[in-house]
Design a protein around this nucleic acid. Sequence first.
DNA 1: CTGAAAGCGCTAACAG
DNA 2: CTGTTAGCGCTTTCAG
Lengths: 334, 334
Amino acid sequence: MKMTIKDIAKTAGISYSSVSRALNGLKGVSEETRQKVRDIAEQMDYSPNAVARGLVQKQTGTLGLIIPDITNPFYPELARGVEERASAAGYNTFLCNTNYELEKETSYIRNLLEKRVDGIILAPISSQSNFLEQRKRMPLPCVYLGNAPQDTGYSFVITDNVRGGYLAARTLIQKGYRKIGFISGNDGGWMVDERYTGFKDAMKRYNLEIKDNYVQLENWRQESGFEIINKMIHSGDYPRAIIAGNDFLAMGILQGIKSNGLKVPYDIAVIGFDDIPAASWPEINLTTIKQPKIQMGADAVDVLVALLGDERIEIVSEPRRIILDPELILRGTC
Amino acid sequence: MKMTIKDIAKTAGISYSSVSRALNGLKGVSEETRQKVRDIAEQMDYSPNAVARGLVQKQTGTLGLIIPDITNPFYPELARGVEERASAAGYNTFLCNTNYELEKETSYIRNLLEKRVDGIILAPISSQSNFLEQRKRMPLPCVYLGNAPQDTGYSFVITDNVRGGYLAARTLIQKGYRKIGFISGNDGGWMVDERYTGFKDAMKRYNLEIKDNYVQLENWRQESGFEIINKMIHSGDYPRAIIAGNDFLAMGILQGIKSNGLKVPYDIAVIGFDDIPAASWPEINLTTIKQPKIQMGADAVDVLVALLGDERIEIVSEPRRIILDPELILRGTC
DNA sequence: CTGAAAGCGCTAACAG
DNA sequence: CTGTTAGCGCTTTCAG
């Protein structure tokens, strides 16, 4: 049977509050009893009940990570970053896969609320994601990760997507490309808008025109990249360089280009976003704008923990906004 | 402030035990009061406290998933399978990344124990993984996933690795290859032994010799695949076909072969293991032995839930052993 | 059908 | 330094 603090107290012949003190390293016990208690605990293979503790302390030492799909290579690194940092900070992480379904996202939030997680890290699907818009406020400390509303009062950790878009475009422009296209998924999130804004900024800055038919905002499926570029090429009027909304899409585009007998980057250059692991494989070798994914995950935890700290001392904390720098990773596709 | 069952009771003017019954759909309340309670709960935005419930029921509705590395493309699908099924069964999943460190695995187990998870799904690093060997018994329902000891009394879900190894070898042999090598990581897990056994079986069955220098059991890093094949090729005596311990290694081998100016499969054929997503990308196009990863994850949850069911009715359950069929996925590398 | 009461395992005042 | 006591929010007998 599972041992409790009372069992220890009994065999030690002391009160169980003393046991609690001893085990938790609180002052108010002699070194002697402390050691005795520890010995007994060890020997009885005692395992403190975090559930009971959570009930009284109103802190569970757990947090929820909500992501669209762990199977999408962008998210594992994010998850790794948060899990690692969370664990180091004494938190356990609930993994929640929404499978891109808004409804699941909502139900997970409710679910995590019931489990009384201390906070939530949310990598949202789209801008409709926010619980907050639909109901009142998120009733729990929450930090947006990767994709976030910058104007509402929420904490977030993102990379500077505007700058990323700008960087991508500028790189292409400086390499001499003039006819530049932009192909991306469009889930109604904030991220795409930001990246597109950066792209537009650069084009404007260098007095280049953005042709409407060079811009396609559809979805994130790889095949969709294939099809779009294919259609562009067949139309006879296609850009000399393309910025893809993420690496996955870029890979589809790469395949589409090659399947038309064209060469990358000689006929069409491509630059992706995120720098998923595969981008660095020799077979792919994709130039891309890197997001520091593990860092982002870790930072999100730091932000959340800080928020929790504020809350504990009853401060209504200012939202913390962290915007990390993207990095151009030059490889073979541009 | 957070509402409790008592608040509801007060505003409804009834006892809080009735509220509990009403909310939990237990019999013993009139439809009338039940509806009233539900309305109030809804309107007060009541969220039941799973921690408190967990304390009394001694079930938390959570489970732990321990894996080496979510960043390794084999695991996300496993994780997806368990998370999805767990969620459907009413469980939340703690994600625990051991980063291939035995010590972390052990500390996570202790940690999960304290959190009073209902059970653990363990994708172990090596055969030393088992808590069980070191201490007495895993003090909690546990199912091994992917890599498991078949002789001890534990439940597990794996694919038939012996058959997988056999399948890989037979495929190669039937295609006419005679000089076949085996390159794999060797972490002291059971999986590699099983696959190698299958390989040996097939070679024996077809009266083929296994040359010692064609077998290299080192580690799982991709570069290691590159280096090993490189060395083999330079030695002048190299196999005409290679079975790789997993797809990642196979990719390294592929790169090594190409970097030597040799062609796949004409000069050397390659067959991998697992069928990670990248294996199906046109740029990789790797023939491989597929593990039904999502299925495995889901099955592991089913097994665990069954175990928990047994436990609840105080049955010492027989270990459940699920061995799934691997599948040959023929692509371009053999 | 409903209420009262005990208690899950622990922490946190409060006395001594 | 130590023990007593009162809950945390809920489920679950046990009476009524």
